[in-house]
Design a protein around this nucleic acid. Sequence first.
DNA 1: CCAAAAGTGTTGGTTCTACACCCATGG
DNA 2: CCATGGGTGTAGAACCAACACTTTTGG
Lengths: 197, 197
Amino acid sequence: MGVLLQNETAGRGRTSATLPWGAAHGDETLDAAALRIARAALGTTPTWMDQIGAFGDGNGHPGSADLSVAFVGVVPPGTEPPNEDDARWAPLGSLPSVSSRHRTIAGAAFDTLRSRLERYPVAFRLLPATFTLSELQHTYELLLSRKLHKASFRRALQTAGLVQATGEWRSEGRGRPAQLFRYAPKKKKGPTRGIRF
Amino acid sequence: MGVLLQNETAGRGRTSATLPWGAAHGDETLDAAALRIARAALGTTPTWMDQIGAFGDGNGHPGSADLSVAFVGVVPPGTEPPNEDDARWAPLGSLPSVSSRHRTIAGAAFDTLRSRLERYPVAFRLLPATFTLSELQHTYELLLSRKLHKASFRRALQTAGLVQATGEWRSEGRGRPAQLFRYAPKKKKGPTRGIRF
DNA sequence: CCAAAAGTGTTGGTTCTACACCCATGG
DNA sequence: CCATGGGTGTAGAACCAACACTTTTGG
């Protein structure tokens, strides 16, 4: 679980880190601009993106663009940026030398991702095409920041009908090999769950 | 369930309707600007506000501010804008002569409100200080766009411990009078509910 | 054999939904 | 009395968390 940071030379040889950013062109939508910037920083297309929101603290001078429209995107693990000098993955917990606004945005990105997770199966976009159920569970545990019970997790997944067994097995070092699954949602009508206050 | 629209004179005596809007001052935060604009249009302070997001379709000329940062706010029913010539409530279903972006924003506002509802008790901000349980249920049904079962709704509310009976009763015409309640949440820890895919 | 990780069955408690019913009021 | 809406009890189903257990690999 990392955040992609870019190195910037801020004059006199000093470097600082920022989230990937850029200005929107005059004739493109916000989503298109975000996708373009993400691709440029990452070298590949994110498997999922969504807008977080607009951030502005009012500290800008008139005339300067004191407004950031932030987006979140995710990629499967192992994705590396094209050149390590310009961009690198940083752990979410410790973002070194990042402006306070970018720190706020990174936190909000995590919140947005988590809230989307409870409504759409975003977690699968964070995994390769085939994955083990333990990997899926660990992804959910990372995003939700809490441990999940193995049997309950698998039963809920079975009920939701979102994955399909491939028949392949992968040995992960020690222990019994795990079966690989792929994301294959069946359009099922959830019968409108209960209300939560 | 209405949307506050403002009348604007668009030259040559033609009028069009827009969502309340305004430019942000250089030295105020986005939230402060939204609050200021909402107060000006409404005559009173919304009981709840939150950002929806940024909207821009790339159709603007360079130099013009082709970006809208939208907010939702709610007020109890019966709130009337100061003068009916400038602003009025329009039903959400039929927004006459509103630009496509503002139509998009109005729809997104409803979605944002609904998604916040499932996480925070926003519905109470749409009601007066005291209300009947049926009014509360109807508010939830409006926001969720589905019927709720009366007994289940009240049981869930009881469990959540969010309301307090006032002891007052109100006769609503026909039928048995309904007891009035007030919003009085007790800090209770929900023991981390199950997972939903 | 042993440790480790995958995968499954069962059980008891909680929560939800739907039904049925009683209560109080206006007409 | 009756229609209407408020308010409550209960039973069956669905759900969930925890435990216990078996299976299969590497060392």
